[in-house]
């Protein structure tokens, strides 16, 4: 979503993005002229009249589970976004009985918060697991 019109979205897709991604952009490119939606989400910058690089993860109940907002010159990390979605999906499927420690990726161990685990995380989870 940006403040550009749908006509400009079409030109960008047809003339550039479709040359990067076969078949063009596979999801709707939304137009937010005037920044009304961006204002609701806190990412519209009044002074420049555009939106910053905000990314929101919304769950099946319509709740915001996380977001990240960057200034214009730095692009996002899509893999990290997918990792976060996978983590939120796991937590949701476990009905909140599992939590994903720092550096978690699919296949890595999760933690099951309980009275017995208080003060004992150091026994089962090591700091190098945050970095591999």
């Amino acid at each position: 979503m940006s403040v550009d019109s749908v006509f400009v979205h079409k030109m960008w897709n047809d003339n550039e993005l479709s040359k990067m991604v076969k078949g063009g952009v596979p999801f709707p490119m939304l137009s937010d002229g005037g920044g009304k939606v961006g204002t609701m989400y806190g990412v519209y910058d009044d002074e420049s009249g555009v939106e910053t690089r905000g990314r929101f993860i919304i769950d099946p109940d319509g709740k915001v589970q996380g977001y990240e907002v960057l200034t214009p010159p730095v692009g996002r990390n899509v893999s990290e976004t997918f990792r976060q979605v996978q983590a939120f999906q796991l937590v949701r499927e476990s009905k909140g009985t599992q939590a994903t420690p720092s550096g978690w990726k699919p296949g890595k161990m999760t933690l099951k918060p309980s009275p017995d685990l208080v003060g004992k995380v150091w026994e089962v989870w090591k700091t190098d697991m945050a970095f591999d």
Binding site: M1, S2, V3, D4, V8, H9, M11, W12, E16, D32, G38, Y41, V43, S48, V50, E51, T52, R53, G54, R55, F56, I57, I58, D59, P60, D61, G62, P72, P73, V74, G75, R76, T81, V85, F88, Q89
Partner: peptide
């Protein structure tokens, strides 16, 4: 947005078309 209830949604904002990154 409400049409997507029941699905996971990634809502992304950006400064403008053709803005390089």
């Amino acid at each position: 947005l409400n049409e997507y209830l029941g699905k996971w949604v990634l809502l992304c904002f950006y400064p403008g078309d053709f803005t390089f990154v």
